[in-house]
Design a protein around this nucleic acid. Structure first.
Lengths: 233, 233
DNA sequence: ATACATTTGTGCTAAATAACATGGTTTTAT
DNA sequence: ATAAAACCATGTTATTTAGCACAAATGTAT
């Protein structure tokens, strides 16, 4: 945990959404109170049931927010990419974490104590609006996801997930390969199905030339078809 | 739509959470800008795709927030009771409504233009914190619900819904009858199952003496058992 | 390099749930 | 009061999906 090795300019580049809204004095305050943390691949960042203490801004890497469900099955609730924030919801709701977070790949994150954020919120409305906007967007996504996961059939759910990953992490330079390589199990946990069914359905999509698979590398060939499958469920 | 027929004292009693945080001047501003609206039983309050314009505070009655899913099936996302607020998420996220709202029973609501709320938010941090807290709680509930609806089996989902309704609307004077009378279809839409299965499972619960049913009136007899069924899924 | 663990792929079976059909009951509208 | 509509109940069948078993491939540690 390296504290304050960075200049304010660097911090500002790391967390622009929050930094922008602050006064010079507030920036100084924040600069005295953040820490940088690194997480290894697959490392747990926080667990269900723990007390939330920090706002976490992901500087680098990819993170999954998930929930352990019935019978050890886990459900990926949302994913985080660089320059996105997480870990704060439970604190604001005055709850323990109801989800867990883990690193898909090696990550660097900036941690800010929630008490510091609370202090800043008292005097900075623009920052408050940032959180209101963010929570509102996340709630919309969560509501959307509830219906998608419950009402669509397997093919629809998997198609949905592939498009979801494309939106979240984008594509590689070839404009068609997903920029994230997930295990079949993670893909299943994202799509609310068993690993077997994720594998099977993925193979079917490949056989239908909707995608191409090479190990964990997934190439989206016919995105319109994916949208159609996702839409009809 | 009756505008400003009420004194400020009455308004304060209607919407205490927001009113409390305001200065005298802000109260005056709000008093000039709210309207009271009545909705009939089953009347739609807003539809998916419409533009959000007002913060709605339910003064009286019960409301469902739902989403039309695949093949005409609808999913109840959350429910609102008196003194709760809704209709604002989409505005803050700068989206059209992704859900619809309708009255379970006759309702009275206080509508405040979101532009007015935005103005108040600029100068009132306590109000901003109110929305942050509210959205954070709702997001937690939504995440919880996603897993419950996707991973639990029919009995677990229905048990969950009955407990959910108890938490949301409470019980009648007898301390065991749910204070809301839903159609089997609404109950099914709340629990992510077909109407037939809601009816069947409800009958099973009654046969097992976990609940008693008299038309739409549902008496929770063995709440511990319901909790257990909900927990094991 | 070799053994060991993890992940991926495939087929089969069983369980859960939706879909459909039909009839009775209650509510609503005229 | 009566007809029509909506709702509730139950049985049967079909579909979807989970669960399991096992083999092949890949990754990992010594």
């Amino acid at each position: 945990m390296a504290k304050n090795e960075n200049t304010n300019v660097e911090i500002g580049a790391y967390i622009p959404d929050i930094w922008m809204s602050l006064t010079a004095q507030q920036k100084e305050f924040l600069a005295q109170n953040y820490t940088i943390h690194k997480y290894k691949k697959n490392e747990t960042i926080y667990c269900e049931g723990e007390k939330p203490t920090h706002l976490i801004c992901l500087l680098n890497g990819k993170v999954k927010i998930y929930k352990e469900g019935v019978g050890g099955r886990s459900q990926i609730i949302r994913v985080i990419k660089n320059n996105e924030y997480f870990g704060y919801r439970a604190f604001f709701a005055n709850e323990d974490f109801v989800t867990a977070a883990a690193a898909f790949e090696p990550c660097t994150a900036c941690l800010i104590p929630m008490t510091v954020i609370l202090d800043l919120l008292k005097e900075n409305n623009e920052l408050a609006m940032f959180f209101i906007r963010q929570l509102s967007k996340d709630l919309g996504v969560s509501d959307e996801r509830t219906v998608n996961l419950t009402q669509k059939h397997i093919r629809g759910r998997l198609a949905e997930s592939l498009l979801f990953l494309k939106d979240a992490y984008g594509l590689e330079e070839d404009e068609s390969t997903l920029s994230i390589y997930l295990s079949r199990e993670d893909l299943a946990n994202l799509s609310n199905m068993t690993t077997s069914n994720a594998i099977r359905t993925l193979s079917n999509f490949a056989a239908e030339k909707i995608i191409a698979i090479d190990g964990r590398k997934i190439k989206l060939i016919d995105i319109d078809k994916l949208r159609k499958i996702s839409k009809i469920g």
